[in-house]
Write a protein that binds this DNA or RNA. Structure first.
Length: 667
RNA sequence: GCCGGCGUAGCUCAGCUGGUAGAGCGUCUGAUUUGUAAUCAGAGGGUCGCAGGUUCGAUUCCUGUCGCCGGCUCCA
């Protein structure tokens, strides 16, 4: 007999061989029905796995987030079983649960098609209806390896070699399916109520682009058809907020294949949003003692050799700009492209680079004057456009582009000033997020990966810089995560990360502490001892890039920007031609008051004009007919609150300009 | 860059197994003078992404290429 202790402190005596499910049934059929998995002595445990001694037990039901992961993982096994029934010989990779669903990686000669997906889904339902138990078996490692070799499952063998202990567990599903798996799983397939396969994608084995590529099938699974439907609806709704769609509908930006992939054309309306954001942050920069600078879009290759950007990141740079005649001459001498590239690397040919970062230019500005410790910190800011040759498969919308403008600045300060300066930078990011009402972000402290060689500089400096970042993040008052491998090559950083409508994460604001570049450029300032000292640099961009930030912002507001950012803040709608004269006067008054207003003087019905303005998400529609013209009034309609009734024009202007000045998030 | 899917009028999309294309909305013109989410009528608009190939004939099949979408990898 074992003693099993429940969360309420009570305990039950059970015979050897008893399972968590037995106890759940003993407590009640409703609990047994809702039960997905157990927690035994702190570990997740199959409901049907017998106790192995005196235990604590918790039954996890559909209410527990961990249970949902188990449920989805079990659905992934169901997917794999269906694939093997339909396509024998397919090799299995891995099949974990993920946010909102699961995937399974397969290796097969012929790619899966959309039609296959439907067939697989049907087969899954068929297997599910067989009510098969998820059976747990224990196998000694050597014996297991032989078995999976016999099954011709090379990836499973590789996983066993790497991960399995002396005895490992595997899970069966019916007589023909077996999978090396830590588990746990739901008791049987009949628990799976609602699932759908969503997409097929390529994925490298073990995420390594040098290894073979697998076909990944993504799916989603829920406890009920209703939840599944809601989830699918949510995905549909999210698509409508996609900044790529809204960007076109609202006329904010365009990407033109004749101009080039990933190169953003800001249309007039989008430019207003960007300009307003720049004006907004510039005011805060001024208050924080920043100076503004301008630098060119290119610089000599040598500059980037000094900084370390070239040639180490040659793959993500646009090709160097080299003198035409020099190239012609080299070509005449039979110089190959590879040799040319080599000559560039060695610095034997001079050329220019489209700048991938602004820092080298700012450094040269700093270094153009001698500095005393009394001058520091020096804070140089620039809305600097940089160019990076991102992989073509990565480009999309405004979030991943090849030319973008950072709201960049570099702070040159003493080591003692670092904590205070970093906090000042974080303050800027906080101002942005709070002004725009953005709450869904996470803070990531990117640290170096001790196993990687891509970082420059000595470890002691890294340690100090990482400590400074951790301390600053801690002072922020919001949760943050420490993430090794996420540092910049020259230093650790604090990033603000948000999600787009389809759940992809994007880094926006960033603050990076850098001990390397001042050294590489041999920057100094005169200390109190009148000897040269090395300044520390802080790179920071509170928006990150204007492109990405606006992209995220479009989705955040679903295109309905707050008044102060709206490209058109009010539209004047005369009811008929005889109100046109008054409408023009109103329009001009609005423009004079600094309100971005348009006049819709088309001979259309007011309903039609309202509909268009509404779809354009214009905050205020001012309808005017005889009554308004007589009284010097405007009938105000708000995009969200509808008809607000008539009020004197002066009053509307006063209220609206106040809302704009306050950067109110809603009208 | 890799895997898969897609590319028909400005936009959204239809077009069966090869016989050079159609709708709605937008645009333009005319009529209408309108009170809080679409007034009516007419017209214009596409070398079916681009380049080759197969074929008597290709938007439709094949190859290449460019671009877009999803995922992977990457992101100084």
């Amino acid at each position: 007999m074992f003693s099993v202790t429940l969360p309420d402190g009570s305990s039950k005596e059970v015979p050897a061989g008893a399972t968590p499910l037995d106890i759940a049934r003993g407590i009640g059929t409703r609990l047994a029905d809702a039960a997905i998995v157990a927690r035994v002595n702190g570990d997740l445990w199959d409901l049907t796995r017998p106790f192995e001694g005196d235990s604590s037990l918790e039954i996890l039901t559909t209410r527990d987030p961990e249970a949902l992961e188990v449920y989805r993982h079990s659905t992934a096994h169901l997917l794999a079983a269906a694939v093997l029934e339909l396509f024998p010989g397919t090799k299995l990779g891995i099949g974990p649960p993920i946010k909102d669903g699961f995937y399974y990686d397969f290796q097969r000669e012929t790619p899966f098609t959309a039609a296959d997906l439907a067939a697989i889904e049907a087969k899954m339902a068929e297997i599910r209806d067989r009510d098969l138990p998820y059976g747990r078996l224990l196998v000694p490692k050597e014996e297991g390896l032989k078995k999976y070799e016999a099954l011709d499952e090379p990836m499973k063998c590789e996983l066993i070699e790497e991960r399995a202990g002396e005895i490992f567990s595997e899970y069966t599903l019916g007589p023909n399916f077996i999978d090396f798996c830590r588990g746990p799983h739901i008791p049987s397939t009949k628990k799976i109520k609602a699932f759908k396969l969503l997409s097929i994608a390529g994925a490298y084995w073990k995420g390594d682009e040098n290894r073979h590529q697998l076909q990944r099938i993504y799916g989603t699974a829920w406890y009920s058809a209703k939840e599944l439907e809601e989830h699918l609806n949510k995905l549909e709704e999210a698509k409508k907020r996609d900044h790529r769609l809204l960007g076109r509908q609202l006329g904010l930006f365009a990407v033109d294949e004749k101009v080039g992939q990933g190169l953003i054309l800001w249309k007039p309306k989008g430019s207003i949003i960007r300009q307003e954001l720049q004006t907004f942050i510039s005011e805060h920069l001024r208050r924080q003692g920043y100076s503004q600078v301008f630098t060119p879009h290119i610089g000599k290759l040598d500059l980037y050799k000094t900084s370390g950007h070239f040639p180490y990141y040659a793959d993500s740079q646009f090709p160097p700009l080299v003198d035409r005649e020099q190239i012609a001459q080299l070509a005449g001498e039979g110089c190959s492209c590879a040799q040319l590239s080599n000559l560039l690397d060695k610095g034997e040919i001079e050329g220019f680079l489209l700048k991938p970062m602004n820092c080298p230019h700012h450094i040269r500005i700093f270094d153009s004057d001698p500095h005393s410790y009394r001058d520091l910190p020096v804070r140089l800011s620039e809305f600097g456009t940089v160019y990076r040759f991102e992989q073509s498969g990565e480009l999309g919308g405004l979030t991943r582009v090849r030319g973008f403008t950072q709201d960049d600045a570099h702070i040159f300060c003493t080591e003692e000033q670092v904590p205070q300066e970093v906090e000042g930078c974080l303050e800027l990011v906080k101002i942005i997020f709070s002004t725009l009402g953005m709450k869904d972000y996470r803070v990531r402290v990117g640290l170096r990966d001790p196993d990687s060689a891509k970082y420059v500089g000595d470890p002691a400096q890294w340690d100090r810089a990482e400590a400074a970042c951790k301390a600053a993040a801690a002072s922020l008052g919001v949760p943050f995560s420490l993430e090794p491998g996420e540092a910049a090559f020259y230093g650790p950083k604090i990033d603000f990360v948000v999600q787009d409508v389809i759940g992809r994460e994007w880094q926006l604001g960033t603050v990076q502490v850098d001990y390397q570049l001042p050294q590489r450029f041999d920057l100094t300032y005169a200390g109190p001892d009148n000897k040269p000292h090395r300044p520390v640099m802080i790179h920071r961009a509170p928006f990150g890039s204007m492109e990405r930030f606006v992209g995220v912002l479009i989705e955040h507001f679903a295109g309905a920007f707050p008044l102060w950012l709206s490209p058109v803040q009010a539209v004047v709608l005369p009811i008929s031609d005889r109100h046109l004269e008054y409408a023009k006067q109103v329009h001009q008054r609005l423009l004079d008051a600094g309100i971005r207003a348009e006049l819709d003087d088309r001979s259309e019905k007011v309903n039609y004009k309202i509909r268009e303005a509404q779809l354009a998400k214009i905050p205020f529609m001012l309808v005017m007919g005889d009554r308004e013209a007589e009284q010097g009034a405007v009938a105000v309609r708000n995009r969200k609150h509808g008809d607000l009734g008539a009020k004197p024009l002066d009053e509307f202007i006063a209220e609206t300009t106040a809302l704009i000045a306050a950067k109110a998030v809603s009208e």
